[in-house]
Amino acid sequence: MKELNEYTEELHRRVDLKVQTRRQHRRRLLAACVPLALVLVLGTALVWPRLAARFGGEEPRDGLTCEGVIAAGQAPDEIPELATEQKEALPEPDTGAASTLPHDELELIDDPQSEWNAEGIIPSDFSFRFIWGCYGISSYDSESGKLVKTTDATRPEDYVTTHTLTWEERAEAWSLLSALELEHYPADYDPYNAPDAEQRMASEPSRDLVLTLRADGSEITVSCREICLGGVVRGYDEKARAFLAACDRLERLLTGTPEWKALPDYEFYYE
């Protein structure tokens, strides 16, 4: 057996070695953890706003609110509720395309339709009916998918087709209609003339706009019968302008579908 002092020297040597090894391990751990922590912090900073917008719906997503993104297909001027800065942040509307959701936003969602529906953003029973037109009435009912180009034809049945909304169109329609809050509009409504207006705006011919929203087990219809054709004339207040803008957007959305474009040209034109 060795003497005690030899064991003691051995102990000192082992303790020093162990302490050094522990220090090395700690340094290596730190060296590995610092970049990892940086990656995590940066990753969180980049991903969090998108996740929050996707799941919470309250945080801004690339500078847009959730509503702003969906309404991005509209010309900014047509969305009176939006603040000026938000309007500036909106992308230019794609008037020719049926789908107006920004492409990069769509890529964020693997199965967007099911996720949107699963989160209750769009009620499962949501549908709408939209009637518009001057002489020949055009209409669309998203429940049945029936799309009518005009009723003013020798063979009206040639002007009827079926269009099922894509999920983007459905999301856009829901966004437009839910933002309008149709329950705050009278059932018979004239967006060009205030109820107490002394002088009434009118045109010959006139036109009809009927908007029906079905969601959460209820149905709301706002009918605008024989109202002014519009054009240069704008709605009499913000609410009216929002209504007209939504109708205009819906019309462009439906007339932009391939099914609409496949229908024959109007038989009668009016000057």
Binding site: M1, Y7, E10, L11, R14, V15, K18, V19, R22
Partner: peptide, 18 residues
């Protein structure tokens, strides 16, 4: 096993001081 016992005891003492 004495050599092993010495080694193990040394390990235990090392742990005490580390």
């Amino acid at each position: 096993d004495l050599p092993a016992a010495e080694d193990v005891a040394m390990d235990a003492m090392t742990e005490l001081f580390v």
